[in-house]
Computed example of a mutant assay.
Amino acid sequence: MKARIFDALRAALAERRAVALVTDLGSGLQTLVDAEGRQQGDAGLEDEFLPQVVEAIRQDRRGIVEFYDGRFFINVHPPANRLLIVGAVHLAQALVPAARLAGFDVSVIDPRTAFATPERFPETDLITEWPDEALERLRPDARTAVVALTHDPKFDDPTLTAALSSDAFYVGVLGGRKNQAARLERLRAQGVPAEQLARIHGPVGLDIGAVSPAEIAVAILADIILALRGPKWKAG
């Protein structure tokens, strides 16, 4: 890989932009293509071929593609999946290492500095801004999950309002069905559209009968991965 292509790839990932490195298997020439079909490199891909590359980026799909008399290897480089946890609570202490193990970049957001401490969350990105301010700055994208765990409307409600207006692929909130109903009523009164409210995973996590913080963390992470990847089995 030439230095300028490598630098462009590194810059795209730093900016959380998915790109594909397309290699002409005949000539060895390479081109970097982004999700808008813009290309940078030496291969000079045909305009008719670019939609296939863009679709591969959208589906996070790698492989060899034949186009006319050429063969190309499309290697998609998506940004890392990201989990933003609002609430430096006991459950978050179980969810952070589980999410890391699954390959997520994890940040914990909580303005309560007595809770958001390096001692409770070692080697974790701790953000002590108010949730809505933090989410505005972090700009959740299509590879970002947001989970609110505080059980406190003054934190959870602004989190949901900000997250639901973003491109986050998953928005979840802790709480029972009664709390969820009251929460939805509050958000409706604040003018949050029904189609956004329908995106909320609440009570958060798959219903696997989880009881302990570790089990609930597994249920939440499983639900996030299901939303990201989709089910692998279908009836019929």
Rank of each mutant, 00 (worst) to 15 (best):
P158V: 00
E136A: 15
A80H: 14
R186E: 07
L101W: 11
A114H: 14
A219H: 08
L84D: 04
L135Y: 00
N179K: 15
R4I: 00
G87R: 10
L228T: 00
F49T: 12
L160K: 04
D156K: 10
A198V: 12
I5K: 02
R120S: 09
N75I: 03
V108S: 06
R143A: 03
E119S: 13
A163N: 06
L228A: 15
R120Y: 01
Q52K: 08
R229Y: 04
G209R: 10
P122F: 07
S166W: 01
A116R: 09
A102N: 08
K2R: 14
F155Q: 13
L135K: 11
D69L: 11
L50E: 05
P213I: 02
S107I: 13
I220R: 10
L226H: 12
A210N: 09
T150A: 01
P122I: 07
L138Y: 04
P79L: 05
K154D: 04
L206H: 04
P51V: 00
L83Y: 00
R183V: 11
D141A: 09
S27P: 05
D42G: 03
E48H: 12
D24K: 04
T144I: 01
A181C: 09
A163W: 00
L45W: 00
R139P: 06
N75A: 14
G230N: 07
D110G: 14
A14V: 13
Q59W: 07
F72Q: 08
Q196W: 09
R177S: 14
W233M: 13
G44K: 10
V106W: 11
T159C: 06
V146R: 11
H201I: 00
G63K: 03
T161V: 15
A148Q: 05
V211N: 11
F73G: 02
E185Q: 15
R16A: 07
M1H: 10
A222T: 04
T31Q: 06
V53Y: 10
L135M: 07
P118L: 04
A43D: 05
G176L: 02
I224Y: 08
A116N: 08
V211E: 14
A20V: 00
N75C: 12
F67Q: 08
T23V: 06
R137T: 15
P111V: 02
A20Q: 00
D207P: 07
